[in-house]
Structures are given as C-alpha cells and as structure tokens.
Design a protein around this nucleic acid. Structure first.
Lengths: 342, 342
DNA sequence: AGTTAGCACTCGACGCGAGCGAGTGCTAAC
DNA sequence: GTTAGCACTCGCTCGCGTCGAGTGCTAACT
C-alpha cells in the first residue's frame, strides 16, 4: 500500500482541520468541508489505510482521527511552502531599540513580543562569543591536591576553575606545562576546541594523568554555559493548550522550562545548525520526556555575521507551523539587522 | 461584643486547622481536636460572634468557617512568636558561593533554594546602589509639548525620561529651572529623594504646574527599575495551591509574575522598609488584584551595610507564616554575611 | 445566665444511569 | 471502485437521588 495523491489530500485535510480545532477529525467533516468529491464512506476506507500506514491515530473507537508525529513530519517537510516568503520590516523592533540601551532588555523584549504574537512559549539566549580565541592559559598551584586553571581570551574574558589532582606539583613544573599547553592551543577559537582537539592535544603532550585532567577541565570551562542567560516568555500560555489540560503535565513542562532543564538538549543542537536554517523538532523527536507532547522551532541569531545566540518557540505538536515559522524567520531577519547596528 | 480569651482560642484553632487542611473548619472538628473543654454547640455560638466581628467567613451555608484577612492579620501580629528564634548557619550557601563566581547566579540559586524549601514562589532582585548621588540635572526642550529630563549621578549613571507639558518652554527658561532644581537636589543620594523631599522641593520652587510634573517624573526616573533584574523561582508551585484550582486565576497570577507586573508595587514598599524588618502583607492589603488571594513576605538584603536588594515570597493567604518567615530570616542572615565577603 | 443535646434544614459532593451524538466498520448494491 | 445504509461503540452531558458535614434554633439542664 502506498501513499497516493488522494490519501495525501485526505491527510492534509485531517492535519489542517486538527490544527485549527484540536478535535479528532471524522470522515463526514472532511467530506463536507474540503470538497474532494468523495463520500464519507470512501474517506473512511482511506483513513483506515492511513492509520495502517501510521499517519493517523484514533484516540478511542468511535472517535475521529488525529495526526501522528509521522504525519506532522511529512506536513512540515513537504506541505509547508515557506521558501519564497517575503519578510517585511518590523518597525516595533526599531522602537524597542530606542527605548532601551541594554542588549539584555532588548532580548527580553524580543522574547516577549514573539510570545505575544504566536501565543506560544518562547526563549532567547544571551549571545555567546565562541569565536573568541585563547590568548593565554595558566596553571596555578593552590594547595595540596588543588590546581587553578585560568584561560584568558582575546576578548579579555577570563574563565577559571579549580581542579583536584592526586599529588602536589611545583609551580615551575606547572609553568612548563602551561607553556606547552599554550603552544598547542594559542589562537584557537573556543569553538575549535572540541572533543577531538582535546584528545589530540592529550596525545601530543604525552598522555599524562594530570594533563588529562587539566584538558578535561579546560574543555568544560570553555564550553560551560554558566554565563549564558536564557530569557523565556509566555510560559503561562501552556495552561491554555487543550493537550495540557492535565495539570500535572502542564506543571511538569513549566517546571522544566523554569529550571532551564529543557534547554540543555535544545541549545546544543541549535548552535550546530547551519546559518539561517530553522529547525523543527516534533514530539518524540525531542529527547526530554516533558517535551514529547510538544514541538520545537529553533534557530540562531547573529551579531557581525557570527552565530552567537539561539531563539526558539515551544508549542503543542498541533501548533500553527506555517505562521509560527514565518514569524520567527521574519523576526530573525529584522533582529540580525538590528543587532548589527549595535 | 469583644474578643475575649475563649473567642481568641477558638479563632486560633480555626486558623491553625485551616492552615494545614485548607478546608473550612466546623465546630465539631475544633471540639474534638483542640481540647478547649466546650461542646460544638457552644463553639457554634462563639463562631457566630466571630463571624459578626469579621474574623471568619462562611463560603456558603452549611459549610465550616475560614479565617478572613483580618484574622490572618491578628494571627501574624499577635500569635506569631518569632522574636527569640536562633538562626543556624546554612552551609549550602557557602558551597553555592564556591560553585559560582557571579553574584547573579548566586542570587538565582538563592531564589531557587528558598522556593524549594518553602514550596512557594520566591523572588530576588539584583542589587541597586541607591546611595549614588545626584550630580547634575538638566531639562531639554524637545518639541511642542515635550520635555526631556536628564539626571546624572556621581557614579555616572545617566537616567532620562520625556514628559508631556501643556505649553512650550524656552530653553533659557528651562536652563534657569534646571539650575534651581540642581541647587535643591545636588549631592542628595537617590534614596534621600523620597516623596516628602519631592514635596518640599515643590514648595521651595514655588508650586508651578510644570515644576510639579518635572519633579514627579524625576521621582519616577530615580526609582525606576529598568536596570534591575528580578529572579523568580517556584512559580509552578502556584498550580498546586487549592485556592488556585481555578486555572484562570492561577494563570493570571503567573502571568503577572512572569511579566513582572507584580513587582512594581512590592518593591517600592520593600525598599522603604527599615533594616532587618520582614514585611507581611495579606490578601486585600496588596494593591494588585491578582495578589488579593495571596500573602507576601518581603525583606531586604545588604551589601556592606547598604540595603541594596529585595527578596520575598509569594504564597496563598493560607501559607505557613511561621516557618516561612523563619526560613526567610535565617536565609537573610546568612546571605548578608555571604555578600559581605564578596 | 451560660452551656449543651437534639433536631430540622441547607447545600455541595458524589455516583449512577439514561440519552445523545459523533464516528466507525461492515455489507450489499450501484 | 464507490457509496448508501445500518448496527454498534463510546465518550460526554445532564438530571436525580443520596450522603454527610455543618449550621442555627429551641428547649432543657446546671
């Protein structure tokens, strides 16, 4: 059995109807409202096939059908035509810039506006300059069993961390070690220092136990998200989605968002995204259990051409993908321009 | 009719019971569980009196009684004995300090821990240095009906705001006015410029309509909270209070908190608090409609002896005042010490 | 005069069953 | 291959009776 054109049209109709009503869709509804020229009985037969193919599911016997994750994926991949959209200028962003000088407030406001427009939950991270380069790395003897690792970047950000080691190392030994590591890492940007690079430096420096520990700490320092804030808005909208009528579910999701647990996964994948790409991840495609009833639309924003931050929308799987993606794209275009002017 | 000792005991019993069960309290319950040595019938008579006195209310006929705001106020003022409490050292705060260098993260964590301990919603503001002094004040003619007020402090913070006026003022007139106002306000710290000071300057400058407007704007500029962040935690706890079972109420309150509307009132009164004082404001005592079903416990924290930030707890009127106030006091003591060490 | 037992009454909460209606799958005819 | 017809399923709503917690009132008791 294959997905012929009529099945596709019916599926499309089901999705479209379900997106607006949030109610299971029956054969009669489709026959009446989407003139495909076929009777409810025929549609029923096709729907039975679509269910077998895994595109729709029945919440219970004698209910209509609702789209599955697979259907949403198909919808997003093939039925959403966004390529040729034109994006207007958002004048309110300019006004925003005038009313506040701090970029933090600007980002907060952007999250707020996006939430207001889409009625979903939104988030924006503060910018992360991952192209900053290592200028200096220094190891400092603190006390028996403790070392301090300090990294200074060419943007004069200072990051440090204490690590535990088994024995005491003399400062002259540490200085030599610092020098070696500096040679290996100098002028590398933070994003270039990935897991592989760390491993290769380990090899090059001779696989010493302490060097291993230092490099692991270094990796963490560089990639720590401690100084990144995430601004959210519209979390209370979750309470109004019919799929979160169950208070426990809603509360679990809201707590995950409040505690920032949600973002651990999201941000990694977003920063790996190629420029200008909007990523949609639907239901079960999300790692976090609380997000399995949600869809996520994420993208990145730029300052001086550098991809520095993430912005995204969390909504029910039944969300209005078309308009939401449109809004996000339009916002990003205006936002990138705005941030370049800062 | 007066509030004799027996009535007081019954009221106390009602409050105590209601705080734990969140259910209206009946006469039989009190007779059985709090051995006051009187029968339900007698208690009913007394309760009838207590209702007439405004200390308890009946949600509907044939239901038990619940304490009114007035009762909570009495309870908090006279029945809560907190004076002689000893506060232990919170070791986890020290650990917190070690794990993060930034004060922002420290404050976020403090809000989180307090929410976790109390199961209510908490907030902490970032520090505000209000002892900065006025260095210069300038009025600038913008256009017909619009003036710009600029204040510069000795810490080189610049604050400004446009205000609307009825007619146009020549810049030379504005300069003279600026000079006059500067004379009055120069070298005053921001916290010294309170409502009373503003009033007295109004008098001294001759009660002109425009001067009034300028001074009002000035007051707002000085006390505006634009560069202040407010960290909240535990907002989802609201969903579990029985008094917010109504989703619309819960969602309205959570939105108010998310949008920071709640804090406009709260913060003004908190910063006016004398040092070390914990303020409790119950139900209708709160300005904001969404807070009328809540109680608020707020106090301030200090850095180098200066009162710089607010911290507080938002819970249902039925909250556990005793333990919550205790937790807050204990936290503040440790927090002030910790912040001094920074 | 204050206290208490007794009693009728109120009213929300809960559970149950009938009825409704949206929707299905199957069958037989077109 | 399509469709009309039909029996069947099942969640939802609504009304109704019951239950029980709680009250106020009255009359009797101390």
């Amino acid at each position: 059995m294959e997905l012929n054109e009529r099945k596709l049209k019916i599926l499309q109709a089901i999705i479209k109807d379900y997106l607006t009503t949030a109610e299971p869709v029956g054969s009669r509804t489709i026959s009446k409202n989407y003139n495909l020229g076929i009777s409810p009985a025929t549609i029923r037969n096709e729907m039975s096939d679509l269910e077998e193919l895994g595109f729709i599911v029945q919440p219970h016997t004698s209910a209509g059908r609702i789209p599955s994750d697979k259907a949403y994926r198909l919808y997003v991949d093939t039925m959403l035509e966004l390529q040729k959209a034109e994006f207007g200028k958002l004048v309110y962003l300019d006004q925003l810039l005038k009313s506040t000088g701090r970029i933090e407030n600007l980002l907060k406001e952007i999250a707020r506006l996006l939430a207001q427009e889409t009625h979903y939950t939104t988030f924006v991270t503060t910018p992360q300059y991952r192209r900053a380069k290592v200028k200096n790395l220094q190891l400092i003897d603190l006390e028996e069993g403790k070392l301090l690792v300090v990294v200074v970047t060419d943007t004069n950000h200072i990051k440090n961390r204490t690590i535990r080691v088994d024995s005491r190392y003399d400062q002259t030994v540490l200085n030599r070690l610092s020098f070696q590591l500096n040679e290996q890492l100098y002028n590398l940007s933070l994003e270039e220092i990935g897991k592989e690079r760390i491993e290769s430096v380990k090899q090059a420096t001779g696989e010493d136990q302490i060097v291993g520990k230092i490099l692991d700490a270094l990796f963490e320092i560089i990639h720590e998200v401690d100084d990144m804030d995430i601004y959210t808005s519209g979390t209370t909208n979750i309470l109004h989605y019919p799929e979160f009528a169950d208070l426990d579910k809603a509360s679990a999701l809201m707590r995950s968002i409040e505690e920032r647990d949600v973002f651990k996964d999201i941000l990694n994948t977003t920063f790996d995204l190629e420029d200008g790409k909007v990523k949609i991840s639907i239901g079960d495609e999300n790692e976090l259990p609380d997000l399995k009833a949600c869809s996520l639309i994420t993208t990145s924003y730029h300052i001086h051409g550098e991809r520095v931050g993430a912005i995204g929308i969390i909504g029910p799987k039944r969300m209005d993908y078309y308009n939401t993606v449109y809004s996000l794209r339009c916002l990003i275009k205006n936002m990138d321009e705005l941030l370049n002017r800062l």
